[in-house]
Computed example of a mutant assay.
Amino acid sequence: MTRSRATAIGFTAILMWALLALFTIGSAPVPPLLLNALCFGIGGLIGLVWTARRGFGVLRSVSWRVYAFGTAGLFGYHLLYFTAFRLSPSAETGLIAYLWPLFIVLFSGLLPGEHLTARHVTGALIAFAGAALIVLGRDSDGATTAAGLVLAFGCAVTWAAYSVLSRRLGDVPTESVTVFCLATAVLSVVAHLVMEPTVWPVTASGWLAVLALGLGPVGAAFFTWDIGMKKGDIQLLGVASYAAPLLSTLALVLAGIARPSWMLLAAAVLVAGGAMLAAGGRRTGRKT
């Protein structure tokens, strides 16, 4: 698989994550950890279908340490994220949590065979400014707390570390993500029973939103992201990830949930400009 093709596959995860907010709103009033359990359960079923192509024997060749690493990444990030917003439901929390694309760019410079340039860092910072306009411009009904911000920072570092370290597991088949998803679903059920009440979707559209989340943003996206992180342009994908909050807001505008604004246009220019700057320094044509 070429580097450019793997990058394109990884970018489909960003496109799917752009629908995360829209489908999450549609899935109300399901509490976060129960929603996590349902979605990762669906994602795990997708993985079983994916794995069936090569045979389930491929899963036996994967070390338990890899399974522990992947499960900790997926479950740890979402637990920190949901808890951060429960303690501090503010725009500032969202902004701190969205440091993960910048951390991916910075951490990637520590990987063998990768070269971090000033273009990558500058592009990431410009794109982050665009994401900041989106996040800080949203209405916020909650207060900011130090504990919430610390947990948000922790979830940003967790997802960046998971994504970048996945590169070191390039020989591990993407089918392993199936086990990550199923284990995360089980842990989410346990956390749900301990931390929150059980509330199911009340309408057919609510169930459809849960299904859509599991099929895309909290399901298939983790498989395509794994391919992008292991075989694609990791710096470019890190910068391009800032398109997610922008595209998410555009989806909410098209759905009539959010209103268009000049701020949205300015954010689009910054995110696109940062991604184009970072793309200008990438290497192409290498096979992995």
Rank of each mutant, 00 (worst) to 15 (best):
M1C: 08
M1W: 05
R3N: 14
R3H: 14
S4Y: 09
A6H: 02
A8C: 10
I14W: 04
I14V: 15
L15M: 13
M16D: 02
A18H: 08
A18S: 15
L19W: 05
F23D: 02
S27C: 07
S27F: 04
L34K: 01
L34S: 11
L35A: 12
N36S: 12
A37H: 00
G41A: 06
I42Q: 01
I42D: 01
I42W: 02
T51A: 15
L59G: 10
R60N: 10
V66M: 05
L74T: 06
L74E: 02
F75T: 04
G76D: 08
L80A: 12
P89N: 11
T93F: 03
G94H: 05
I96F: 06
W100E: 05
W100L: 07
P101K: 12
F103V: 08
L106G: 11
S108Y: 03
S108R: 10
E114Q: 15
H120V: 07
V121T: 14
A127I: 09
A127V: 07
G130C: 00
L133I: 15
V135S: 03
L136G: 12
G142E: 05
W159D: 01
A160L: 06
S163V: 04
L169H: 12
L169T: 06
L169D: 04
D171H: 14
S176P: 09
T178A: 11
V179Q: 09
S188A: 15
S188T: 12
V189Y: 00
H192Y: 02
H192D: 03
E196Q: 12
V199P: 12
W200I: 01
S205C: 06
A209R: 01
A212K: 01
L213W: 01
L215G: 11
G219V: 09
A220N: 00
A221S: 15
F222M: 01
F223R: 00
I227T: 09
G228H: 10
M229I: 06
L237D: 08
L237T: 08
S241G: 12
A244T: 13
L254S: 15
P260Q: 00
S261Q: 04
S261E: 13
L264R: 10
L265G: 08
G274R: 04
M276V: 13
A278C: 12
A278G: 03
A278Q: 04
G281K: 08
T284G: 15
